[in-house]
Nucleic acid binder design. Structure first.
Lengths: 132, 132
DNA sequence: CTTGACCCTCACGTCGGCGTGAAGGTTTAG
DNA sequence: CTAAACCTTCACGCCGACGTGAGGGTCAAG
């Protein structure tokens, strides 16, 4: 399969696919013409890469991780358990990122909620809080 | 107060404080020497800006928003209710960002959990799932 | 042969929130 | 007087995951 078809089948731009190769996330064969020749399994591989990228994993970590993943994507191969530690770091980084965003959103919601919708409400708000 | 003291009191670098002025997030007065002269209230203002930046609000939106905020930071002034719409957009953007991160983390956790800790566990895992 | 779809490799542009100098003026302490 | 600690503006560097051309090759159809 050439790059255009893979792009269509994954919804990823050709540029992104070339970028993934540059980052060693994909290693397509080459046709005599120099065209990239992707395997059918690369459709799944691309989805895999995308979900890990969406998790915020840096591409070099994904590159290290991919050869460790079994076909089903269910776990890591033996001899790759050294990857667990960086994975746990990323998990913790995600957790704190989520907490930060959640706190920020709560603050934003509070600001929105405390803003009156019209002048009548504003007058009531002033009466309750004092003149601004 | 000059920039160094404000930096110390807020934990924000001087460079960042100059950047905030460049982005119209702060408007310090100037001393005859040309030095920035910050008001005491700018300590709170900086914390405010930081929390909005942490929420992912673009600085130009914060710049529009700041003159709308009352001293207590509790709500928006009247005549600024047009800000509500972009704020709600940002809130929704935050919500979907949080959902994405949460889903990504769940996937990462699943990957970690399914990876056996030692060879014995791996043998059992192979027995249950078939050879990898 | 020509058109046109498809592909290639550079290589610079983008966004945001700063970091990091360079090159110099001002104020303060000794 | 000197040195240190401030301060100024100007302006390029950085990160990451691509976007966006430029300037070409490849290949099947008409």
């Amino acid at each position: 399969m050439r790059i255009g078809e893979l792009a269509r089948r994954t919804g990823v731009t050709e540029r992104a696919l070339r970028y993934y190769e540059e980052q060693n996330l994909l290693r397509p064969a080459r046709l005599p013409s120099g065209y990239r020749d992707y395997a059918p399994s690369d459709v799944a591989a691309v989805r895999h890469v995308r979900s890990l990228l969406a998790a915020g994993l840096p591409s070099h970590l994904i590159a290290d991780l991919l050869p460790c993943m079994v076909d089903t994507g269910d776990g890591l191969m033996p001899g790759c358990r050294s990857m667990l530690s960086p994975l746990e770091s990323e998990r913790d980084r995600l957790t704190s990122a989520i907490e930060q965003l959640t706190a920020a959103r709560a603050q934003l919601i509070a600001l929105i909620d405390r803003t009156p919708d019209d002048d009548a409400e504003y007058d009531a708000w002033v009466a309750a809080h004092g003149a601004g």
